[in-house]
């Protein structure tokens, strides 16, 4: 018989590590033949993983569509009526988003110990995400006169692919605000380790995606 509340208390903080430890102890006792690792994934962790899977599948199809249309176009890419895309501003945006993974990572590592450190780190990540969205908008103003969403397939791809990604970063920023709000409202007392960890998975995904899209949309027109 296990006292439920005692078990809950034991597994509340550092849920994953505790479950892992219990598994290892059970193996040492000889109760289980081998440890199942990793143990203690939460339903939220799996939910975010599957969400990332479906999003990744959609962006993979989109990037594949980009190359499909690019290689079924005869002649130059972008078409002669469009100018080559601007590399600098979106490059800075992508760099900022990728670098923001560092404070995100640090936030995850500190979220179980010192939540007062986590908070400013997450604020930094949120600002980086906002910067990315703003720089994307700046890039649209650079591209706009020569390429438009409805001028040709090149323009449709450029604006929609990057726009959809920037929209996702925007959603990520809003989710981040929710996590920050949760920390403020709960007075840094209740643990937010789970939420931070799940949020970080999404953030890394957005950063990887930003690199793939940057290479596809802003660099390949120069080399192909």
């Amino acid at each position: 018989m296990t006292d439920v509340n005692a078990a809950l208390r034991r597994t509340r903080i550092g849920d994953r590590e505790t479950a892992q430890g219990e598994t290892e102890r059970a193996v040492r006792r000889g109760a289980w033949p081998v440890a199942e690792t990793p143990a203690g994934r939460t339903t939220g962790w799996w939910g975010m993983l599957l969400f990332i899977c479906t999003e990744a599948a959609m962006f993979a199809c989109f990037i594949a569509s980009y190359y499909y249309l690019r290689f079924s176009t005869d002649g130059s890419w972008p078409p002669v009526s469009d100018k080559l895309p601007h590399r600098i501003v979106p490059g800075i945006g992508t760099g900022v988003l990728v670098l923001s993974c560092l404070p995100m990572f640090a936030a995850v590592r500190t979220s179980r110990k010192s939540r007062a450190v986590t908070f400013p780190l997450l604020v930094l990540v949120t600002l980086a995400g906002t910067t990315f969205v703003v720089l994307q908008a700046v890039d649209y103003m650079q591209e706009y006169p020569s390429s438009t969403p409805s001028k040709d397939a090149y323009g449709s791809l450029l604006f929609t692919l990057t726009g959809l990604h920037a929209f996702h970063v925007g959603i990520g920023v809003l989710m981040m605000l929710l996590v920050l709000g949760g920390q403020l409202a709960r007075g840094f007392k209740k643990p937010q380790a789970g939420a931070t960890r799940v949020m970080a998975m999404y953030w890394y995904f957005l950063a990887v995606l930003a690199v793939a899209i940057y290479i596809t949309v802003y660099l390949t027109p120069y080399i192909m």
Partner: peptide, 13 residues
Amino acid sequence: LGMRFFDTAKGGD
């Protein structure tokens, strides 16, 4: 919105 993903005359397919 008049985009051209499937418009063969404008580079779509």
